[in-house]
Amino acid sequence: MKGLLQKDFRLMVKQSSFFSTIGFVAVIFASVVKDTSFIISYLTFIGFMFTLSTINYDEFDNGNAFLFSLPITRRGYVMEKYGFGLIMGGVCWLFGTLIALISGQVRGTNSIQDTLGIALVFFPVMLLILEMMIPFQLKFGGEKGRIAAIVMAGIVFIVFLGAAKIAETMHVDLNGLLNRLETMDERVLGVLVAAVSVAGLLLSGRISVSIMEKKEF
């Protein structure tokens, strides 16, 4: 796995101009936009999405055939992709939180507590998006993977909408449920979101391994 991480980090370093642009955009946002929490979600999302771009690099020019002839396993490959995503997402999240904190303090727009609270919510939410996208990317590859993920997100939305309608006809008070979530202790809510995120990570990882093990190159 060390070799694969090495490869992905080196591929990423080659995109230094992309990094500079992202950093520049983040700093501009921090000095212009009032709600600095956007910087955290923006940078964390970009960080997580780097792992998808490395999957694209691996597939380019039938590169996977050679890659999987090297001393790696398909399971190891999947684990590396999630690991790389977590490292990149984590680093970008820290960077984004730092910028948001500094900007919030200098401009007096957000308190430290507010910014940290938002940052702690954004990380698992962005992680959930990554967890959803990696299996699609592995199954369908580049462009098709993104389209499939968007379609899937639409289906999930429709399912939720349908479930809400059914709940309404069965006289289940969804608004009350949501209100209870809002008034729930922040720490409990945090643990709940983190638990969903970790469960999602395990499920997504399992699906990805099964996709990769069926793939032929």
Partner: peptide, 29 residues
């Protein structure tokens, strides 16, 4: 697998890497 050396006609290292990167990746694999 470490005891195998492989060349495939239609596949190889990512074109975005350079030889220095390849040395480092192979060293870790």
């Amino acid at each position: 697998r470490q005891k195998l050396g492989v060349v495939l006609s239609d596949s190889g290292f990512s074109g975005y890497l350079d030889v220095k990167d390849v040395v480092s990746v192979l060293g870790n694999l």
